[in-house]
Simulated scan of single mutants.
Amino acid sequence: MDMLWSLIASCERHQLDPQRYLTSVLAKIGSTPREELRQFLPDVWKNEDAAEPIPAAQCEK
């Protein structure tokens, strides 16, 4: 449980939406090679996520 709170606190520190971050990471982490796991660090993920276009369905909310 402490690790989950640590992830959420890290999201807040990097001004990320914890739900969006965790949804994205959990969807991809199982098929990601160990040497590529760094991409899921919140600060790295934030930079990569900012480069991706937001799907139209999410823009309508």
Rank of each mutant, 00 (worst) to 15 (best):
F40G: 02
T32N: 03
L37E: 00
A27Y: 05
K28Q: 13
L26G: 06
N47H: 14
E60P: 01
W45Q: 05
Y21W: 02
S31G: 12
P42K: 06
Q58C: 03
L41N: 07
S24L: 02
E36V: 00
E35N: 14
D49A: 15
Q15A: 13
P55W: 06
P42Q: 00
E36I: 06
Q19E: 11
A9N: 15
Q15S: 15
E12N: 09
Q19C: 10
D17H: 04
V44I: 13
C59I: 09
V25D: 05
D2F: 11
Q58D: 12
S24Y: 09
V25G: 05
E60R: 15
Q15E: 15
K46T: 01
V25I: 08
A9T: 06
E36P: 05
L26Y: 11
D43W: 11
K46A: 09
N47G: 12
I29K: 07
A9K: 13
D17I: 08
Y21E: 00
S6F: 12
N47V: 15
L41I: 09
T23V: 12
K61H: 13
R34C: 11
R38E: 07
H14W: 12
S6D: 14
M1P: 09
I29F: 11
R38D: 14
I29S: 06
S24A: 12
P53W: 09
P55M: 01
P55Q: 04
E12L: 10
C59P: 00
A50D: 11
R38C: 07
T23Y: 07
L22A: 03
L7Y: 09
Q58E: 13
E12P: 00
R20Q: 08
A56C: 03
Q15T: 12
A9R: 08
W5M: 14
D49R: 07
R34H: 13
A50G: 09
C11L: 01
R13C: 04
S31L: 07
A56F: 10
G30E: 02
I8T: 04
L16E: 00
L41Q: 03
C59D: 03
P55L: 08
Q39P: 04
Y21T: 01
P33K: 01
W5I: 10
T32K: 05
M1Q: 13
V25E: 00
L4V: 08
L41K: 07
